[in-house]
Amino acid sequence: MPLGLILGIGRAMRRKRTSSLDILSSKRAPRNYYKGKNCKPTGFHTRKGGYVVMDEKLPRYVVPDLSDFKLKPYVAQCPREATTTEAADPPK
Rank of each mutant, 00 (worst) to 15 (best):
K16T: 14
I23L: 06
R31I: 12
K37V: 09
V62A: 06
Q77Y: 10
R31K: 10
Y74A: 09
Y34G: 08
A76C: 05
K70M: 14
R15Q: 13
R28M: 15
Y61S: 09
I23M: 06
R31M: 13
K57F: 08
L21E: 12
A76S: 08
M54F: 04
N38S: 05
T42I: 11
G43S: 01
D55S: 05
R28N: 15
T42A: 09
L66K: 07
D68Y: 03
D22N: 08
K35P: 00
R47S: 15
P59K: 01
R47P: 11
R60E: 09
R60H: 04
R47M: 11
S25M: 14
E81R: 07
L21P: 01
E56K: 03
V63Y: 14
L71F: 10
G49F: 01
Y61P: 03
D65I: 02
V75D: 12
T18K: 09
G50N: 02
M54R: 10
R60T: 12
K72T: 08
A29I: 02
R14T: 15
M54G: 04
K48I: 11
G49L: 01
Q77V: 12
K70S: 13
A29M: 07
L71R: 12
K40P: 07
K16S: 15
I23V: 06
F44K: 05
V52L: 04
V62Y: 09
K35V: 06
Y51L: 05
K35R: 10
N38H: 08
G50Y: 05
P79S: 01
S26K: 06
V52R: 02
K40I: 02
R31A: 13
K35D: 09
S67Y: 04
R14D: 14
L24I: 09
S26W: 08
E81I: 07
E81G: 05
F44T: 04
